[in-house]
C-alpha cells in the first residue's frame, strides 16, 4: 500500500472523511443535543485536519494559508461550542430536558 502511509496525503484525507461522516451520522441520529454538538465538533475538526494536510502536502512554498485556516477553525469551534452549551443550558433550565424530540414546541 504505497498511497496510504504517514507520508501520504491520501491517508490524512481518509481519516478526515471518516471523521466528517461520523459527525454527520451523529448529527442525523442523536436525540440528545449534546450528542449532536459532539457530531458538529467532529465535522469541524475533520475540516481542520484536511486544511492542515492540504497545507502540508499541496501548498506552494511560502504558503501557510492551510495551517492558518486550521488554527482559525480551532478558535471558532471553541467559541461556537461555548455559545451552544450556554443555549443548551438555557433549554435545560426551562424544560428540564435536552432531548430534541421532547423539547419540540415551536411550529404548532
Amino acid at each position: 500500500m504505497d498511497e496510504f502511509g504517514p507520508h501520504d496525503l491520501a491517508s490524512y484525507l481518509l481519516v478526515a472523511v471518516v471523521l466528517f461522516c461520523a459527525g454527520v451520522l451523529a448529527v442525523a441520529t442523536r436525540r440528545n443535543a449534546i450528542g449532536v454538538l459532539i457530531g458538529l465538533e467532529l465535522m469541524l475538526n475533520a475540516a481542520a485536519l484536511q486544511f492542515a494536510a492540504y497545507g502540508h502536502f499541496r501548498a506552494l512554498p511560502n504558503d501557510s494559508q492551510g495551517q492558518t485556516a486550521a488554527v482559525f477553525v480551532l478558535v471558532v469551534a471553541a467559541a461556537e461550542a461555548a455559545v451552544a452549551l450556554a443555549l443548551l443550558f438555557a433549554v435545560y433550565r426551562t424544560s428540564k430536558d435536552i432531548d430534541l424530540e421532547q423539547t419540540q414546541e415551536l411550529g404548532s
Binding site: L40, M43, L44, A47, Q50, E80, V91
Partner: peptide, 23 residues
C-alpha cells in the same frame, strides 16, 4: 430557548459543511 438551540445546531451544521468545502 428552543429557537436558540435549533438555530445553533443547524447553524453549526451549515458552518461545518462550508468549512469542509473550503478545505
Amino acid at each position: 430557548a428552543e429557537a436558540g438551540m435549533k438555530f445553533v445546531l443547524f447553524g453549526g451544521l451549515a458552518s461545518a459543511c462550508t468549512l469542509f468545502g473550503m478545505s
